[in-house]
Write a protein that binds this DNA or RNA. Structure first.
Length: 423
RNA sequence: GGAGAGGUGGCUGAGUGGUCGAAGGCGCUCGCCUGGAAAGUGAGUGAACGGCUUAUCCCCGUUCCAAGGGUUCAAAUCCCUUCCUCUCCGCCA
């Protein structure tokens, strides 16, 4: 959520920002409603002031043994008017709040302006895609013969976009999880968290998944609970409603969790294999920072995600998303894309974003500056560190051998019981 | 799920209809005291929204004692609903 005052005083800038993001938003209605809110508030507050003074006077008269009937009647009438106006204000505020929650974050000035993914800017590449002496297979043609991936049974147990991992497939999934968690906790200073995977509506709204993106989420119909689409949600909300001390910052959290996404609107895309699943595992990183440090923290967090791929020896590139391709709550986003030989292109495996104070304002997370000033909103960052399912795919495809076996990267072997080759 | 107790400021803890944003204590900030520190001592110490304003300073107003609703001229205090915590019982990985 943006600062309402700022929006009010910078409507031109907001309109331009919405345009850059390809966003359709009724800004005129918002401005109009905001003015009406203040106007009505002024009216009702004046009446309340009168009523408060009157009530006090009634008290004093009664104590003095005087008759206060006329005054009480007058205050009763004011009370009725107040109630009426209070309801009006509440209605306006609810509508205004709902609108405000649907305005996307403002991109940082360093973000390239562009319409879609074609305007994203490549920042750097690492590793050289391997030159195969044979035709590299897609992961589904590797996984099924090896007996480590079962797509049919995934569908049978749930529906399409679910996969069963078996034997070495499941083992590698678990190895990757432990490898990434150990790296981030022991080398990068993150505190490991095991959070709830079901969260309530307030939590889901804090990070911006609600109210706008309910269609993308799985919901528990009998409870006010939703399945998380990423551990960003519980991790970032860990300090919702709190005022932290500056000395407590920055906070580094990471967690392994399954993630659940309905993938509404992606019918037909990446239907084969397990590139795009309704359920997938991920190690997520979250940072809570002061505004001054948040962009340095973004660079560092992106490096932490890259380190995973570097150690596994998988080629990747880092791109900076343009204004039109960025997510709702992000002010700046780096995507990390891994090389997939079967597709002959780079595919997203991690997304690292600085949300600045966008989520903090929704959650109510502030910090008290060390110099004792007023509490300020923190900046929040999140990044995949990294998506495990896609990492498994990338590993399989990049490390495949001509006979269909897969060499396990050395860095992973200690986590896979010494397994060197899956065959 | 059943029975009971309770949810007040950064913490602790008073407050059962009126001048209570809320006593006392702790903590914190500033000052005094001290060679310095402790102890002692004096003062201060919440947030949101709106108005005023060059100003996120002041000042003024409104709101906030788990959340939402109700009663009343007036609610932290009375009533209802929900949520949460604790104790006991039941159930359970």
């Amino acid at each position: 959520m943006l600062d309402m005052k700022w929006v009010r005083e910078h409507t031109d800038e907001v309109a331009a920002m919405l345009l850059n993001r390809n966003y359709n938003f009724p800004l005129d209605k918002f401005v109009e409603l905001d003015a009406l809110r203040r106007e009505t508030l002024l009216e009702v507050e004046a009446l309340k002031e009168k009523r408060n003074a009157g009530a006090k006077e009634v008290g004093m008269k009664k104590k003095a043994g005087e008759n206060a009937d006329a005054l009480m009647e007058e205050m009763r009438l004011i009370g009725e008017k107040v109630k009426e106006l209070d309801e009006k204000v509440a209605g306006i505020e609810a509508e205004l709040q709902d609108l405000a929650m649907r305005i996307p974050n403002r991109p940082h000035s360093s973000v390239p302006v562009g319409a879609d993914e074609n305007d994203n800017v490549e920042i750097r590449r690492h590793g050289t895609p391997r030159r195969f002496t044979f035709e590299p297979k897609p992961h589904w043609d590797l996984g099924e013969p090896l007996g480590i991936m079962d797509f049919e049974r995934g569908v049978q147990l749930a529906e399409s976009r679910f996969t069963v991992l078996k034997g070495a497939g499941a083992r590698l999934e678990r190895a990757l999880m432990n490898f990434m968690l150990d790296l981030h906790t022991t080398q990068h200073g993150f505190t490991e968290i095991a959070p709830p995977i079901l969260v309530n509506t307030t939590t889901m709204s804090g990070t911006g998944q609600l109210p706008k993106f309910a269609e993308d989420l799985y919901r528990c119909a009998n409870d006010d609970l939703w399945l998380i689409p990423t551990a960003e949600v519980p991790l970032t909300n860990l300090h919702a409603g709190e005022i932290l001390n500056e000395s407590d910052l920055p906070k580094y959290y990471c967690a392994f969790t399954p993630c659940f996404r309905r993938e509404a609107g992606s019918y037909g895309r990446d239907m084969r294999g397990m590139l795009r699943q309704h359920q997938f595992d991920k190690v997520e990183m979250v940072k809570i920072s002061t505004p001054e440090k948040s962009y340095d923290e973004l660079e560092h967090m992106t490096n932490c995600a890259e380190k995973v791929l570097q150690l596994l020896g998988i080629p990747y590139r880092v791109i900076c998303l343009c204004t039109g391709d960025m997510g709702f709550g992000a002010a700046k986003t780096y995507d990390i894309e891994v090389w997939l030989p079967s597709q002959n292109c780079y595919r997203e495996i991690s997304s690292c974003s600085n949300c600045e104070d966008f989520q903090a304002r929704r959650m109510g997370t502030k910090y008290r500056p060390a110099n004792g000033g007023k509490p300020r909103f923190v900046h929040t960052l999140n990044g995949s560190g990294i998506a495990i399912g896609r990492c498994l795919i990338a590993l399989m495809e990049n490390y495949q051998n001509e006979d269909g076996s897969i060499t396990v990267p050395e860095a992973l072997r200690p986590y896979a019981g010494g397994l060197e080759v899956v065959k």
